[in-house]
Design a protein around this nucleic acid. Structure first.
Lengths: 244, 244
DNA sequence: TAAGACATATTGGTCGAACCAATAAGTCTG
DNA sequence: CAGACTTATTGGTTCGACCAATATGTCTTA
C-alpha cells in the first residue's frame, strides 16, 4: 500500500535463494567480483546475508549451473569468466536484468535467428514425416489458439521436423524470450495477419517438401518481424537504444 | 584396486546431489516420467533414496535450471517437457549421457556451427578493434600454447569481435564440447597444420577487415574439420552410427 | 638441509529435526 | 450452494552437528 508505481506491487515475494543469486549475479557480471576471485566461504556468506547456509548453498548450486562460479570441495568458491563459461541461461538472466530488452542485444538474437531458422525450415520441409505434417496442419487450423502460442508451436514443430536436436534447444531459447515479449508484436492486427500468412505459406511449402521455398518464406517473415520490431523500438524509445 | 579398466578408477566419486540429478535426468529423458507427472514430495524422495532432504533440494534446484522440472511452493514438483523447456545445458547433459558423442547429434552441432560461424567471422573482420586485432595476433603467435587451446581462443576472440553477445554464449557451448573431444582431432599432425593455416589466414583477413574473405576462410576450415571428423568416425565405428 | 610423512585447520558436502509459508482440500456457515 | 474458515500437504528456511576433500604447517628422516 506504500507503493506509488501502481495498484499492485510488482511481486518481490521471490524466494530467498533466488534473491541471493540475483545479488551475486549482478556483482559478478558488473565485474565487482573479478575472474578468479575467491568468494567468502559458505558460512561467511550465510552470516553476512543473515540467512542459513543451506539457503546459500542452493543459490550457489544455481550459479554453478549458470557458469558463474566454480565450487571446489575443501577449497573454496571461485568466480569464473562468464564470457567464457556462461551459457544461454545466463544470457537470458542478463537480458532480463534490465526491465526492457536492450535493442542491441535483441539485434544480436535476431541476427542469429535470421541465419539459422530459414535453413532449419528448409530441412524441415525435406525431412518432415506425414505425421508431423498432420500435426502442423492441426496447429495452424486451430482457430482457438492465440496467434503467439500458435507461432511458437509452428516453429517448435519445424524444429522437430528439421531433425536437428541442437536447433530445437536453441529454439527453446528464442521461444522463451518471445513468450514474454511477443504479445507486443501480436497486439498489432497487421502483424497477426502476416503471421497467419506465414503459417499458411510454410504449411504449403512443407507439404510439397519444397526446401528452398520453405527457406525463402521463412527468411521473408523474419525480415518482416525484424523490421516491425525495430520500428516499434524507434517509436517507443526513439533512436537512443540504437545501433552500437 | 578392484577395478580392471586401468590403473586408476575413473572418478566415480561424484557428489550425492550430482548422482541424484543423473538418476532423475535419465528417467525424465527416457520418458519413464511423463510430462506433467507429479514427482514424489521432497521428503519422500529423500526417504526413498536414503539421503537428506537438503541434498535432494540441491539436486532439484539444478534440475529446475536445466528445464527438467517445475517446483511449485506448497504444491509439488512437476515434470516439464524437456523438448520444449530444456536448454543447452541439458543438451550437453544429453550428449554426455553416452560415453561417446553420437554421430547424429554431433552432425547436428556441426551443421549449425557451419551456418553461424562464417557469418560471425565476417562480422568480426568488419567490427574488430585494433586492440582485438593485437590480441588475436598475440594468441596466434604464441608458440607455447597447445593448438586446441589456441583454436578455442581464436574462436572466442572472433566471437567477441563480432559484437554479438548471443553468438559468444553459443560459442561457449561449442567450445565446452570441443575442449573435451578436440584432442582427438588435434592429435593428427595434418589437422594441427590445417588449423595453423586457418589461424594465419583469418588473421590476415581480419587485419584487412575483409568480411567476405573471413567468411570464406572460416567456411573452408569448418568443412575440412567436418570431413576429418566424419572420416574419423567411419574409421573407428564404421558406418553404424551413420545417417539417421 | 630438503623431501616426505603426518597432524591440523579450513572449507565444501551431508545429515536430522524443527518451524515457516504457500497452496490445496475439506468443512462449516449463512 | 457460494463463500469464509480450518486443516493438511508440500515446498522454503533455519539450526546445529558431523563427514570428506583440500591446503597448510610441522615434524621426522634420509
Amino acid at each position: 500500500m506504500e507503493e506509488s508505481k501502481g495498484m499492485f506491487e510488482p511481486i518481490n515475494r521471490r524466494t530467498l535463494h533466488w534473491e541471493i543469486v540475483r545479488q551475486f549475479q549482478e556483482k559478478i557480471i558488473s565485474r565487482q567480483f573479478n575472474v578468479g576471485d575467491k568468494l567468502p566461504t559458505e558460512r561467511d556468506i550465510a552470516a553476512e546475508l543473515n540467512v542459513n547456509r543451506a539457503t546459500v548453498r542452493e543459490a550457489l548450486k544455481k550459479m554453478e549451473v549458470l557458469g558463474l562460479i566454480e565450487i571446489r570441495h575443501g577449497n573454496g568458491i571461485y568466480v569464473k569468466d562468464y564470457l567464457e563459461s556462461g551459457n544461454l541461461e545466463l544470457f537470458k538472466e542478463i537480458i532480463y536484468m534490465k526491465d526492457v530488452v536492450q535493442i542491441d542485444v535483441l539485434r544480436n538474437i535476431l541476427d542469429i535467428r535470421k541465419i539459422i531458422v530459414p535453413v532449419m525450415a528448409g530441412l524441415a520441409a525435406e525431412n518432415r514425416t506425414g505425421e508431423e505434417l498432420a500435426e502442423l496442419q492441426h496447429i495452424i487450423e486451430d482457430e482457438q489458439m492465440p496467434m503467439l502460442e500458435k507461432d511458437l508451436n509452428v516453429h517448435h514443430l519445424i524444429a522437430r521436423a528439421s531433425r536437428n536436436l541442437f536447433y530445437l534447444f536453441i529454439l527453446n531459447f528464442f521461444n522463451q524470450v518471445f513468450r514474454d515479449y511477443g504479445y507486443l508484436y501480436f497486439e498489432v492486427p497487421e502483424n497477426r495477419e502476416r503471421s497467419k500468412q506465414f503459417h499458411n505459406d510454410i504449411l504449403d511449402a512443407i507439404t510439397r517438401k519444397d526446401k528452398s521455398l520453405a527457406g525463402k518464406i521463412t527468411a521473408d517473415v523474419l525480415q518482416y518481424t525484424e523490421d516491425a520490431i525495430y520500428s516499434y523500438y524507434r517509436a517507443v524509445y526513439g533512436n537512443e537504444g540504437g545501433y552500437s
